[in-house]
Every structure is written in structure tokens, then in C-alpha cells.
Nucleic acid binder design. Structure first.
Lengths: 339, 339
DNA sequence: CTGTTAGCGCGTTCAA
DNA sequence: TTGAACGCGCTAACAG
């Protein structure tokens, strides 16, 4: 059903019908009523494509999902997506999702989205320190908001967990519990957040006068298999750490499993801390101590910020750092022995 | 950059440029080369909205994500989404995702997508036996493919796991292991798959001459908290079951936790079986016996089937039932005692 | 108050 | 082989 046909049925011009429906004031009340009534009766719904073409906007926001071959995706993303989607839906904006394998195809997907005018704005997730996707968006002048920060030549709109503070706090807490040999299993260093987490960890060490030990630092991909290898190496060293700080819960749970396999009891002989507070963290045995992110809420804010950006709000007013409080459960405890 | 401007630069008509770019035969090779060259140089990319409007299609597929307030979404969905998205991307179709709270708003989201002509086809996930979303799509004559079957008045295009066979096989296996008191924690009965799973379970019981015992049947929501309550009730009954068949892995892991809390050892005193084979199934302690679904592959097929449907393939040729093989790990074993 | 005209960017007749 | 003209469905300037 189109505007034209509604107009024909009513013996009115398309223009009048359009204006009646869009609440213009220069339409007589009686016509307006007739139009609205007829539109409802025949179930008229405007064609968004036509509207979009006319307005010169896509009425949609794009997001790219980088997929890893052979790996389950981090449930994190789904929560973020749901948070974003719900809010965008309320703002009457569509969410266009592209799933592409991690790698060079990724940037192409951004280009397709932007240059084909399928999206008015882009949401970028899992930012890297040097992020060509962001460079591209800046160059093109496309509004965008990121989940996570990056090293950029001009300020950008972002929302991010304050991982540095969170890791500093967690490390300090472990030190309080008597730990001195605290290892960090970090994220791949190209991710901005990896640096933040490491910095927070180092901050706390420094404050306590403990030297950073490269043997207590490992890096891993953020998937289900990632954590185990790193943890295994760290735990089989001559003098193994008494505590393990992990890049996220998935990695932490992998570490937990390895510890069990090696016959190392948690938390008696080893404390483990995760990040994200996924549901499975609380359900693990022992329940995982972790730093909490409210992912769905972050998604919702991301959507709101995107709308604000589209509405012209300056990027400097769209920068949010979210607390990630430490949730102490059963996987952490006093350092073993008199260590 | 528009077609018009490319044409102006070249002193050609819009028509010629359009045809050169779209591979029409009635364009001289020299002009075609010039056009293609110029287009690439200025980075011309067709405006998809305009294309879509002209063609009368949206060049997009829609999917609705029903979200549960206060609950983490099932990671299942993300895998499905990635599978769908990757394949659709290759077919140059957009994926429009709507996240709406489970409930009445859901159908509205479908209407918005369809009636606003934002999607040419729809993918429906988590089908219900009587599914108003499907009724609506049939009424409107919109092409769609479902993940999961439903009771519909005419055949539909679907892909589904053969849960009946899978549950029958698993139950039979437990019987082989000597179990007689096998409980089922099923999905909410409005879901089509719930009936399939129960039927498979009953098939196997019947074949073994074991009567169905309503006290060994419970139903639960498919989220992280769901399984625990049902499992708790079943395991605290006077004569408790020796085996637990669960609607999915999330529920099974909840049951595993409850068993541990109640001091019931797995698999010595209780066998537990899940469904899906999420990564955390293999990582559980003991590792969970489960029925495997290749979710990402299912998503990819779903996308292919959607394209086929758009291409005019009949629904009867687009119905696939996927095997869900039993993966035996550590959570199942012989029935305890001489039971 | 209403209708006519124009144009968003593209593909597709139909003539030349 | 090329271009002019039209229409997809909608909104907006301009007349009347």
C-alpha cells in the first residue's frame, strides 16, 4: 500500500495525504481525520527505503561482527548487540549487522556499509590501539561510536570499561591478600584494552614496590582455547605464581580448568580473577572472582550515543568510562603458606 | 559520489554510465573501460537505497532477536547470527537485526520490518508450536525460513535439528547403561522442539518397556537460572532419578552444579546429558555428555535457504533435518548399584 | 487549506 | 551505440 493509492481512494493529492500523516499544521482537521482513518484501515505503512532516499539518510546504524573461524564467538557480543538493538529500535533506527571473518575483509565490510549508504553511523567494537577502521571512518567523516578506546589523531566518541582502574584495584586486593607472585594473562597487545589492563596491573605492582616480572606475563587470544595454553605455561614454571589475573572470564575459566588438571587447588594454592562477569563466572566451581561489566547497559548507551552523534552532539561530550567493580567470589583467597 | 556526477565528469549520460557499470552488451568497449576506470578512480559505489527502491526490493533479510529482561542471551543465537551473516554478506544481502523484549512487541517488530519494506525475507528463530509470527508471514506472503519447525496450516521452509531422534538415541544409550529412572528436564511446552525432545525420550522408554513417569518430567525456561530449580526438585524426590536428560547445555550445567551441591557424584550416582555442545560443555567438570549441533553451519544453511526462497525455490524443497550426534564425555556412566 | 512541480539516485523502457 | 524520459515512493518548495 502506497501513499499514492491512499490518495486515490480519497480523491486527494499525494502531498495532502503525506502532510496529514506527518502532522503538518496546514491541513484541515476534517481531512486529517479522514486520511488517518483511511490509512489505518488499509494498513498503510510508509516505505522506509523511499523515505530514506528522500531524506538522504539510511535510517540505520551499522555494526560489524568479526568472526573467528572454528571458534565460538564471545557471548559478550550478543549482549552488546541486544543492548544496542533494543535502544535503536526505540529510536526507530534499523541495525544492520555484517558478520565477516576477522582480517582484511573487515575493512571492506565497513566500506560497503558506508559507501553504499546503508548506514548513517557505525558502531565499532573491540578497538585496536592503531585501528584502521577508525582511521577510515574519520577520513570519510562518518559519525561513529566505539566500544573501547584507541590511539587516534583526533578525539572520538567512545564508551569503555575503566579496565586500568579495575585491574589496579584487583591487583592491589591480591597484594593485600599476601600475594607477591601475581601473573597476568593479557589480551593480544594490538587491542587497546590490553594496554590498559596491563597498565593497571603494573600500577598496583609499582605502588607495592614489586618489580614487574616478564615471566609472569603472558598473552592470549580471547577465545575458549586461548587461556589454557598460557595458564599451563605459567603454572608449570619452576616457581609458579600464586595468583592469576586474566583478560576475561573465558580465559579465567580455562585457567581454572588447567589448575584443576595440574592438581593445584583454587583458591588455596592459586587465586584466579576474571573480567566481564559472564553468567558462567558465578556458576563455575569454585565461583569465579571477577570484574563486572554491565554489557547490555553499555550497548544501550552506545546506541544512545550514536543517536546523539547523529543529532550533532560533539564527540568530546560523548566519552564515557564505566566502572568495573570487583566481585569477590570463591576463586580468590590469601596467598598460600607464609609466601 | 553519484552516477550523475560520474556521468558529468565523463560528458556522458547517466544511462550510459549505468549500463556500462552493469555489464550491458550495448555499450562500446572503449566507453565501458573509460567508465569503469573513472568510477573506480572517484570511488563510485551505487546507493543501495536508490537501487532497492528502483528494484522494488530491500536487498536485505530481517531477523528478530527476542531478549529476556535480566537474562543473558543464549550464546547459541550469536553463533547462528554469525553463520547467517557471513553467508548473506557473500550474497550481497544486508542483515537487519531487531532486538525486542520477548512478548507482544515481538510481532510488531516483524510487522515493522515487513510492512516498512525493510526486508525481503525473514528468518524466524526459536519457533513455537502455534506461532503467530509464522501465521502473520504466511498471511502476508512474505518469504521466510525458520530455524525449528512449527504446526502450520501449510508447509514452510525450515531447518531443524532432529531432536526426536537425538533424544531417542540418548535415552536408549542410558537404558543400555542400566538406567531405568531417567528424568527429562524439557523446554517450555509452547516451543515446537520441546515436544520433539519429549517424544524421542518417550519413544525410547516405550521401546524398552519402561512406563513414562510424570514425576520424572520437568519443564524449565532455557536460561542460566532455569535448570537449577527443576533439577533440585527432581533430585530431592524420595527415589531420585539415576539419569537426567536436559533440554540444552545451559540447563544441564545448572543441573550439574545442583548435583554437586547436593553431594551427588556425577557420573557415579547420576548421569547427565545436555544438548547443543556449547564450548562450555566440553570444559565442564566432569565434561558434559551432550548432543552436538553445528550451529554456525545451520546459520549458513539458513541464509542459503533464504536466498533460494527469494530465488523462487519451493518451500517443499527447503526443509532440512540435521543430525545431532551424541557426544559421550564424562558426565554419563553405568547406572549406580544393581539398579 | 490544497494541488502542482520537482527531485532524492537509480534502472529501464523507447527513440534516435 | 547512446541519450531523453519516466517511474520507484516519498517529502518539500512554491503556487493558487
Amino acid at each position: 500500500m502506497t501513499l499514492k493509492r491512499v490518495a486515490q481512494d480519497l480523491n486527494l493529492s499525494v502531498t495532502t495525504v503525506s502532510r496529514a500523516l506527518n502532522g503538518y499544521s496546514d491541513v484541515s482537521e476534517s481531512t486529517r481525520e479522514k486520511v488517518i482513518d483511511a490509512a489505518r484501515r488499509v494498513g498503510y505503512v510508509p516505505n522506509r527505503l523511499a523515505q530514506a532516499l528522500q531524506r538522504g539518510t539510511a535510517e540505520a546504524v551499522g555494526i560489524i561482527l568479526p568472526s573467528q573461524f572454528g571458534h565460538f564467538e564471545d557471548p559478550f557480543f550478543l549482549e552488546l548487540l541486544v543492548g544496542i538493538g533494543e535502544r535503536l529500535h526505540n529510536a526507530n533506527l534499523d541495525l544492520v549487522v555484517c558478520a565477516v571473518p576477522e582480517g582484511p575483509a573487515e575493512l571492506d565490510a565497513y566500506k560497503r556499509l558506508v559507501e553504499g549508504r546503508r548506514a548513517d553511523a557505525i558502531i565499532v567494537a573491540r578497538t585496536r590501539r592503531q585501528d584502521e577502521r577508525i582511521d577510515y571512518l574519520i577520513d570519510r567523516g562518518v559519525p561513529f561510536v566505539t566500544h573501547g578506546r584507541a590511539e587516534t589523531r583526533e578525539p572520538i566518541a567512545f564508551i569503555d570499561a575503566d579496565a586500568r582502574t579495575a585491574f589496579r584495584r584487583s591487583t592491589r586486593r591480591l597484594i593485600e591478600l599476601g600475594h607477591r607472585r601475581i601473573a597476568l594473562i593479557g589480551a593480544p597487545e594490538e587491542l587497546f584494552t590490553a594496554g590498559e589492563r596491563k597498565a593497571g596491573y603494573e600500577d598496583a605492582l609499582r605502588e607495592a614496590g614489586i618489580a614487574f616480572d616478564p615471566n609472569l606475563y603472558a598473552v592470549t587470544k580471547l577465545n575458549e582455547r586461548g587461556g589454557t595454553a598460557a595458564a599451563e605455561r605459567l603454572l608449570q614454571a619452576e616457581t609458579r605464581p600464586t595468583a592469576l589475573l586474566c583478560a576475561n572470564d573465558t580465559v579465567a575459566l580455562g585457567a581454572l580448568r588447567i589448575a584443576r588438571r595440574l592438581g593445584i587447588t583454587v583458591p588455596e594454592e592459586l587465586s584466579i580473577v576474571g573480567f566481564d562477569d559472564l553468567p558462567m563466572a558465578a556458576q563455575a566451581e569454585p565461583a569465579l572472582t571477577t570484574m563486572r561489566q554491565d554489557i547490555r547497559r553499555a550497548g544501550a548507551r552506545l546506541a544512545e550515543m550514536t543517536c546523539a552523534r547523529l543529532g550533532g552532539t560533539a564527540v568530546n561530550d560523548l566519552q564515557e568510562l564505566l566502572e568495573a567493580p570487583l566481585i569477590e567470589r570463591e576463586s580468590t583467597g590469601p596467598a598460600p603458606g607464609g609466601a
